[in-house]
Write a protein that binds this DNA or RNA. Structure first.
Lengths: 190, 190
DNA sequence: TATCTTTCTTAACCTCGATCAATTATAAAG
DNA sequence: CTTTATAATTGATCGAGGTTAAGAAAGATA
């Protein structure tokens, strides 16, 4: 059941002992969501992070009625409005499933408990935060230095599953352009 | 001497004890750099992070001869190619002082030592990584959802010291536009 | 299979930033 | 103070993406 989750943490903290792991497992809530479900709402404080056992989600927000897609997450990744989760402030982002999902959810208080009782988890927390940071760093470079067409080409080669599993108008939003523009780019490069 | 540095860490970990602090201080190297000095080079593995006691720096990289500014850092902030520092890979970014600087530098090995000997520093490390993550999150939102003109206006109100202390053509690069475009934006809005 | 809905494509027109080039303003150096 | 280098502005042209609107293609539903 929790095989993927265990792999995930063993890579971060190989010296994880069985007792710590069990107390961590006790905090997990297994949830199933249908495609198209909003699992985290804009404006509400987000109390959970979710490990994606199966499925895919997208992170978005609305600015004056216009929706922006910030990211897609797939199997064996953690998702959640990490910002709201950390700051305990209302979320600026929403999260919606784009496929049927199985998630392992972890509540804020549970995680803080882990941090206090099992210092090894501070390290896992640090490594996860650092990994998120690195992910955003490259996303940033892409948005700042590349033209939409380059961004699309890089996405195709770097994350083919996004191309395969996500509708095109969401990809366009993720690239910072309109669906029409993406359609033209695709026409241009073939 | 290390008053600002201490304030910085006491805000993160209030329960920091004197002995831990002293062993941390022993790792600090105080450095002075003239304006225009490259303190971290693209392509080299970056072994230090620097606390800015005085001055300002910018983070940049080159893509095919073209320079891109990613960020500016000022007093009481940590700077460094955090990515290279974490991954132990050659840096994708360079860092250059844009004013005369006094820095407190911390070496990779020293920090890992702190992590191992003083678990409380794992928490500080996590909180710093999380803060970096949050900073990048808002930068991302700005690059994805805002037009250059909005980005400039937001920068003016959110970080006035950037406007005051950084030459305009660097700000333009930071906003993802040419100096000419920024000049026109400024003309347009006054 | 037929119907309805969602997604993708194409076209025409418009806007803003890029580029190239020249000029003015400001700062640094002698 | 004068000279030189660096920054900032302005103008003209060009192109990629935005916008609006319509139609085609693909999926979902009955």
């Amino acid at each position: 059941m929790f095989h993927n989750l265990k792999m995930f943490f063993q890579r971060l903290i190989p010296n994880l002992d069985e007792e710590t792991w069990q107390s961590f497992l006790n905090l997990q809530q297994v949830k199933h969501y249908k495609k198209g479900t909003i699992i985290s709402h804009e404006g509400r404080t987000n109390n959970v992070v979710s490990f994606i056992e199966k499925g895919a989600v997208m992170v978005y927000n609305h600015v004056e009625d216009k929706r922006c897609i910030y990211n897609f997450f797939f199997e064996n990744e953690y998702t959640g409005d990490y910002e709201s989760f950390l700051t305990r402030q209302p979320a600026q982002y929403g999260i919606e499933t784009i496929e049927d999902c199985t998630l392992f959810q972890l509540h804020y208080n549970g995680l803080q408990l882990m941090y206090d009782k099992h210092p090894i988890f501070e390290r896992a927390g640090r490594l996860i935060a650092e990994a998120q940071f690195l992910r955003l760093t490259s996303r940033n470079a892409s948005l700042l230095a590349e033209k939409p067409e380059e961004r699309y080409l890089n996405l195709v080669s770097a994350k083919p599953q996004v191309i395969q599993r996500v509708p095109q108008y969401h990809i366009a939003s993720y690239l910072g352009i309109t669906p029409e523009a993406l359609s033209r780019i695709r026409k241009r490069i073939r």
